[in-house]
Design a protein around this nucleic acid. Sequence first.
DNA 1: CGAAAAAGCCAAAGCGCTTTGGAAGACTCT
DNA 2: AGAGTCTTCCAAAGCGCTTTGGCTTTTTCG
Lengths: 340, 340
Amino acid sequence: MNLKQLAHMLALSQTTVSRALNGYPEVNEETRRRVMDAAKRHGYRPNPSARRLATGKTGMIGYVLPTGASVDIDPHFVEFLSGLGDYARSHELDLVLSPADADDQETTYRRIVANRQVDAVYISSPRPVDRRVALVNTLGIPFIVHGRSEGFDFDYAFTDIDNEGAFHEAARLLIQLGHRRLALINGDDRETFAIHRERGVRRALAASGLTLSERHVCSVDMTEENGYRATRRLLEEDDAPTAIACSSLIMALGVVRAVRDLGLSIPGDVSLIAHDDVFPWLRPENFSVPLSTTRSSIRLAGARVAERLAARISGLEEGARGEVWPVDLVVRGSVAGAPV
Amino acid sequence: MNLKQLAHMLALSQTTVSRALNGYPEVNEETRRRVMDAAKRHGYRPNPSARRLATGKTGMIGYVLPTGASVDIDPHFVEFLSGLGDYARSHELDLVLSPADADDQETTYRRIVANRQVDAVYISSPRPVDRRVALVNTLGIPFIVHGRSEGFDFDYAFTDIDNEGAFHEAARLLIQLGHRRLALINGDDRETFAIHRERGVRRALAASGLTLSERHVCSVDMTEENGYRATRRLLEEDDAPTAIACSSLIMALGVVRAVRDLGLSIPGDVSLIAHDDVFPWLRPENFSVPLSTTRSSIRLAGARVAERLAARISGLEEGARGEVWPVDLVVRGSVAGAPV
DNA sequence: CGAAAAAGCCAAAGCGCTTTGGAAGACTCT
DNA sequence: AGAGTCTTCCAAAGCGCTTTGGCTTTTTCG
């Protein structure tokens, strides 16, 4: 059942039927009702391929997925997707993942906008002065950045969490508890979130006249093993830290294992706070010692990004508004006063 | 730069240019070279929207993503995606995720095939007599099932691992080590993989005249917490098992925690084997006691599924061939002889 | 050499929708 | 009543590609 048939069956022109269906004003309400009714009765659904050829609208949002044998997709991605998908569903939006060579995403971005394959895109895990952001900005496709990039001569729209604030609070708590030597086990420090977190910790320390030793900050891929290694290295030194801030729950698993392997205890010998993106399958309260966390649901972020993308596509949202969500600090058993 | 312009600039008809570009035989090789050359020089790329309207081909593979506030996407998904994406990239295929109400995926399947939004789809985490498989089969779109469904009066194409064999081997090893009371901490037993794994364990036990007590098999969502709870329940009983087979590394985290909480040890009091889908961020050799596993890379499976989908789309693969991959049993420190 | 076959190209008709540019009729207003 | 204005609808022209059917020209072969 296509438009032509439907129009013929109603003894109307395609024009009128199309307009009736799409809510244009120049059609009699009575006629519109007839059309709507017939369309529903016959289960008419406009062919999206045809519509997109005619209008350029696709009803899809895009994401360029870096791939490669040595490229691991962040497990957070799936939670983000979960929120994004949940919102997208309610607005009949699909998500298209365009796999790209991790070292050449530009080609893919250019392709999907030149081909008008999607109505909008989002970008995640941005770095400062992220090339993707600059590119997408000049290409002129609506977009939202999940996270933040910095140092451009233009503004853009993003949704981020207050990473600096979160880690500032975490560090401040540890300092208040008497800790003087903090360590930070961070994610890839080429990414903005990691830079912000480090900045947060440094700021808290500075406020008390303390500093973050270079040897006490690690920047690694967020795996359990890296959490373990970093912790061993940190705790086997002479001026071992008495408190650790950690950028992910998965790394925290490794931290806990390392501490145990060294015959130390949490929080007796070392306090631990980790960032929690809220996985359904690994919860900080279920760690052997319940883990203090800075918490922010990445799933909610996904839903929000989808919402904003939808708004931009339909022209409801414009401009370069960036929004920063506060992060909860949830104190559990893994922190205590500094050992004497 | 569209076809019309290119044709005009070459003083050829659109027909000829189109055919030259698409490798049709009825065009002079000399002409084809000229066309190819001009196309490359001017960076001509056929408009996919137009092409798909004309041909129905989209260059996309589809996946219906169940969503909802209470629906969690399996963290394995991201690894699978990683492999899928890596292959898809090399074949210029995109992946479209169509979010669907978890309780009504049928509508979405019908939509994406009625609208011809994708060339093929894949289905994951199937159940026996899975409705999606039946649906997609009748809808007539090319598809591959990752995993297996059973009990249909038709055959279909799937790629699965030998879950039964894997858990049979695991159980057999444990039995050989003298264990008599095994337990299975399984995933959702409405899914085929879980059924197969249970069957594998039972078969191994039966071969030695043993059985799997109903109280010793749990079917839960694969979270750390559920692994913990199941283990506590199991080990606090009178006839506690001396060995546990576990369906995921994440649950195994909970198992290990529970065992420790109970003041028991692995493998002294209880042996443990878990299935490992090979996450980059959590490795069995890094468990406090290195974990024995049945191992199968879900990423490779993703790549394979993509490969087969691509083959089906281009007509290189037909028929209902199912393939079953063997699973490695990797023995590490978490298994030992049964306690006396 | 002439008929049949093959090679090489083209015009035009889709694919199914949106949108432009009218046009006919109804209504308003002076 | 005639001019101007809405209201409501339509025919047709795209969107950019593929593909059908046919028309020349060249090649093949008895």
